[in-house]
């Protein structure tokens, strides 16, 4: 016997207690404060004039905000040994090349693994999925040997090419194609005489735009946040993140500029996420591991 059906205005009433709602709200506010206040503090520090940065007792909020720290960050950039625009170029160039190469070859492989049945395909995906279980710290040192064997150490290739083979992007793309590209559509395209490559590019790819965007965002974030790399020792090939780190390593005199630098560096990935959030969450809908 079904328990009594509770409806109001023809809608099912879910079991929610006011106490539970209140408890959840309180938890959420506390956790939210823990997550959000340090981020606010970075912004506050970046806006504080010198006398407020070294005020005792320190205050959390800024009372007379100034952009002076950002100005001094940019003047510090101008006196760097390698022109600062070079660091910016390095990071933008490796991020763009790494991301687009990854998007292209990973989506091609994801399509093949998701939608074509061929001997060995399952085993390949299984191997790739297993590699999500360890990270690049495990492979870092031997990758160094491989890069040096190719003569790629201290070139852009040492940053760009390994990024093409990252795992998470392929995994998410393949899972998304599994659920969002119906086999029947592909079948009719093949019957119309389109080759496999054409079907991939004209039919499948436009159907998985959220997954593209997710893959781009993930790859870009990784490359953007990359600091000093063990594979790069020439100063003029180093990343923006490394250069910013050098500025902030200048000790307590640069506390303001350092906070300003952190704000600049975090603004880019946050803006990227704000614009891509709904697509990323949609992609994550099929991220689950079935076995």
């Amino acid at each position: 016997m079904a328990a009594k059906l509770r409806t109001r205005n023809h809608k099912v009433v879910f079991a929610r207690s006011a106490g539970g709602d209140a408890g959840i709200t309180i938890m959420l506010v506390l956790l939210g404060a823990f997550m959000f206040l340090p981020m606010v503090y970075v912004v506050m520090q970046s806006l504080k004039p010198l006398d407020e940065l070294w005020m005792y007792p320190p205050r959390f909020f800024v009372s007379s905000p100034t952009l002076g720290n950002f100005a001094s960050l940019f003047s510090l950039m101008n006196i760097s040994w390698v022109p600062f625009s070079r660091y910016i170029f390095n990071t933008v160039f490796t991020s763009v090349m790494g991301t687009f190469g990854h998007l292209f070859i990973a989506s091609l492989a994801a399509y093949t693994l998701a939608k074509i049945k061929f001997p060995g395909g399952k085993a390949m995906f299984k191997t790739i999925q297993t590699s999500l279980m360890f990270n690049s710290t495990v492979t870092g040192i031997t990758s160094f040997i491989i890069l040096s064997a190719f003569g790629w150490l201290d070139t852009y290739l040492a940053i760009i090419v390994p990024a093409w083979g990252s795992t998470l992007g392929l995994y998410l793309m393949k899972q998304f194609m599994d659920t969002n590209v119906p086999d029947t559509v592909l079948e009719s395209s093949r019957l119309d005489g389109a080759g496999e490559l054409r079907t991939y590019w004209i039919i499948a790819m436009p159907m998985v735009k959220p997954a593209w965007l997710t893959l781009i965002v993930y790859s870009f974030q990784g490359l953007w946040n990359a600091g000093a790399s063990a594979y790069i020792h020439s100063e003029q090939l180093k990343s923006l993140n490394y250069a910013i780190g050098q500025i902030t390593a200048g000790g307590i005199k640069r506390a303001g500029a350092s906070a300003a630098a952190q704000v600049v560096m975090m603004l880019v990935p946050i803006m990227v996420f704000v614009f891509s959030q709904s697509n990323i969450v949609e992609t994550m809908g099929s991220s689950g591991m079935k076995d």
Partner: peptide
């Protein structure tokens, strides 16, 4: 395998890079 030769070609670019910077480093270690 012969029928699906194109599939192998399509996974090859990714699989080569993936092997080079994930599988080979693990084995080499």
């Amino acid at each position: 395998m012969k029928k699906n030769w194109l599939a192998y070609l399509m996974v090859a670019p990714y699989l080569i890079i993936f092997s080079l910077f994930t599988i080979v480093p693990v084995l080499l270690s």
